[in-house]
C-alpha cells in the first residue's frame, strides 16, 4: 500500500510541470493560437528561474522570474504571429530553436551550480494521514498550485464573460472582431498567459523538480504539454488528468523496471505517445464532439479588415 502511495505521489510531481505548461497552452489555443515554441519558452524560463534562485536563494522569486521570462518570449512570439501574421508553426519552431540556443548560451556560467536546499512542508495535519498523507499531502506547493490553476482556468473559460469572449475569438475571430472585440490584443494576452505558465513549468523543473541547470534539460516536456491540450480536448480538468496520466505512465514504467519486470524500455516509452494517438482517434471520431471542443480558428492567422 505504501509503495502504491509513493507511486501516486511521484506521479503527481511528474505530472505537475506538464499540467502547468499544458494549461497555459490550452489558454492560448482556446484563443486560436498554437505555439510550437513551448519547449523553447520552458528552457529560457528554466535558466532564468535557476539564475534567479541562485542569486536570491528564493524559490518564489525564481518561479516568478521563470514566469516573466516565459511571458517575454511569448510576447515576442505573439507580436510576430498576431501583428506580423507570420506562420504560427514556423515561428513557433523558430522560437524553440532560439530558446534552446539562447538558454544554453545564457546558462553557460550556471552549469554545476547548486541551489539552496528547501524543505517541502506539505499540508499541515493532512500530511500525517496514513497512506493518503504520503500519496497526496507531502508535495511542493506548486503541485497544489497546478490543481488550483486548473480549477481557476476552467471557471474562467466556462463561467465568466471574458472566458466566453476568449473562446469566441478562438472559434471565429472574424465574428468577434465584428462584435467590436479587440481580437489581436486578447489573443496576445492569451499567448502571454500561455508563456507565463510555460515559464512557471520550466522554472519548476530547474528550481524544484530536478533542481539543476543544464542545457536542453526540459528534454521534450514542452512537446508533451502541446500534445496534452489535444488529448484533453481543450478542457482544463481533462488536461490535469491527462498530465497525471502521462506522468503516471512514465513513473509506472520506471516502477516496473525497479521491480525487476523486464520491459523493452523503447516500447514502454512509446506508450504515452501511442496513448495520445489513440485518445485523439477516439475523441475525433465524433465530428460533433471535436467541433464542440476544438477551437475552430486554431493555427490560423487573423487580420482585422481582411
Amino acid at each position: 500500500m505504501n509503495e502504491f502511495a509513493l507511486l501516486v505521489a511521484a506521479t503527481l510531481a511528474a505530472g505537475t510541470p506538464l499540467a502547468i505548461a499544458g494549461i497555459g497552452l490550452l489558454v492560448n489555443e482556446r484563443a486560436g493560437v498554437l505555439n510550437l515554441g513551448a519547449e523553447g519558452m520552458m528552457l529560457v524560463a528554466a535558466v532564468a528561474g535557476f539564475a534567479t534562485g541562485y542569486a536570491t536563494g528564493s524559490e518564489v522569486a525564481a518561479l516568478a522570474a521563470g514566469a516573466l521570462a516565459g511571458a517575454v518570449i511569448a510576447a515576442i512570439y505573439g507580436w510576430l504571429v498576431i501583428w506580423l501574421n507570420t506562420n504560427q508553426y514556423a515561428t513557433g519552431l523558430a522560437v524553440s530553436l532560439f530558446g534552446s540556443g539562447f538558454s544554453a548560451f545564457v546558462g553557460l556560467g550556471l552549469v554545476g551550480k547548486k541551489l539552496e536546499e528547501t524543505e517541502v512542508a506539505g499540508v499541515p495535519l493532512l500530511r500525517d494521514l496514513p497512506v493518503l498523507g504520503v500519496a497526496l499531502f507531502r508535495q511542493h506547493p506548486v503541485v497544489y498550485l497546478a490543481m488550483a490553476l486548473t480549477g481557476g482556468v476552467a471557471f474562467f473559460l466556462h463561467r465568466t464573460r471574458s472566458g466566453l469572449v476568449l473562446r469566441a475569438i478562438g472559434e471565429s475571430p472574424v465574428s468577434a472582431h465584428a462584435l467590436g472585440y479587440p481580437v489581436r490584443r486578447i489573443r496576445l494576452a492569451a499567448v502571454v498567459v500561455g508563456g507565463t505558465l510555460c515559464g512557471v513549468a520550466g522554472a519548476y523543473l530547474s528550481v524544484v523538480y530536478t533542481p539543476l541547470w543544464v542545457e536542453g534539460m526540459v528534454a521534450g516536456r514542452g512537446w508533451i504539454a502541446l500534445a496534452l491540450t489535444t488529448f484533453a480536448t481543450w478542457r482544463p480538468t481533462r488536461l490535469l488528468l491527462g498530465a497525471y496520466l502521462f506522468g503516471g505512465v512514465t513513473m509506472l514504467q520506471l516502477d516496473l523496471q525497479a521491480s525487476g519486470v523486464q520491459v523493452a524500455p523503447q516500447f514502454m516509452s512509446m506508450l504515452p505517445y501511442l496513448a495520445t494517438v489513440v485518445v485523439l482517434v477516439l475523441i475525433s471520431r465524433n465530428p460533433l464532439w471535436i467541433r464542440l471542443n476544438m477551437p475552430a480558428s486554431l493555427g490560423k492567422t487573423f487580420f482585422p479588415g481582411s
Binding site: 506580423l84 501574421n85 507570420t86 515561428t91 532560439f98 540556443g101 548560451f105
Partner: peptide, 26 residues
C-alpha cells in the same frame, strides 16, 4: 565561440526572416 551562440544566431535569423516576409503582403 561556444556552440550555443550559433543557436542564438540561427534563431535570430529565422525569426527576422519570418518577420520581414510580412512586408511582402503588408
Amino acid at each position: 565561440l561556444p556552440s550555443a551562440l550559433a543557436g542564438v544566431f540561427q534563431g535570430v535569423l529565422l525569426l527576422s526572416l519570418l518577420a520581414c516576409d510580412t512586408l511582402i503582403h503588408y
